[in-house]
Design a protein around this nucleic acid. Structure first.
Lengths: 153, 153
DNA sequence: ATTGCTGCAAAACGTTTGCACCTAT
DNA sequence: ATAGGTGCAAACGTTTTGCAGCAAT
């Protein structure tokens, strides 16, 4: 998917839902797509602020929710009570392993997981919406682990 | 596992770790075991307070962490930025489906998941610590869904 | 003209911390 | 005697809200 397509999808979503089309919302979309890796809402807000954007914190938080709803970004939870987001643009669906020593997040794809969430939902009488599968682990080889929780968020 | 065994496990854990053995800590253990289903730290604190316990909020939060470390309770995250706990006493390991309409939490056991987290960790060069697998879904039959997010936490 | 969206600051929320006192060792 | 734990309140970091003004329809 190209960046321009993302704008089009967002535009369509806003129109269909009778949401207003504002420059701020597209600023947030652009910054979210540009952001490398996982980010908290406030990370994005601060980054935008650094780049002299005038978009407010409230708007960033609100817009991220809209972007989740039209599936341009994904919401993640790595067990630290902080919502993280991730653009779906360049990546296929994947899951995460979080190193409990250094906080590093490793993405992986495992074919055995793929069908499970839908299968289980159906069995239980539900329609799946999404799922999250996180593994919490520690590096076997501590040399590769930087023991730096702060930098790897 | 019986409740008394839990106290013994906790006692052993505290001694081995050179942590002090205090009545407050065992009060928290007892209340956590008694609590039906999943609970937030503050839920437990308030419940204890209602039952005239004098244990402080800080002690409840601290002790819950100790109980997680000796595996008497499990930490959960259902994507709402709130840490939830659950006694491991009466149940085997399981995963959760959360209804996005009513907030109901359905527990399930699926044999295909069991070995996956360890397998994947190992492949990636990590030692597994724990994992979380949550499915977010909506009731197919809306009649069974109470649409009451507040009460089903 | 009418809503809905925005920016700002303040409030809310769950959680953590600082500190003086206390208590298990 | 001395760490370490406790209770309390205040602080913290993330997120939400209230409100006046603004801008997309």
């Amino acid at each position: 998917m190209k960046e321009q397509q993302a704008s089009e999808i967002f535009l369509k979503y806003l129109k269909d839902g009778k949401n207003r089309i504002t420059p701020e919302r597209f600023e947030v979309l652009d910054s979210a797509i540009k952001y490398e890796g996982h980010f908290a809402a406030d990370d994005l807000f601060l980054q935008m602020k650094r780049e002299k954007s005038r978009v407010s914190r409230a708007t960033v938080y609100n817009t991220l929710e809209l972007l989740v709803q039209c599936e341009l970004i994904t919401k993640r939870n790595f067990g630290d009570n902080m919502t993280r987001y991730e653009s779906t643009l360049k990546k296929q669906s994947h899951d995460h392993l979080i190193c409990m020593d250094c906080g590093r997040i490793v993405e992986f794809i495992n074919s055995k997981i793929k069908s499970l969430p839908e299968e289980i939902s159906s069995e239980l009488g539900f329609n799946i919406e999404s799922y999250s599968f996180n593994i919490f682990a520690r590096c076997k080889n501590t040399k590769t682990c930087k023991f730096n929780k702060e930098k790897n968020k």
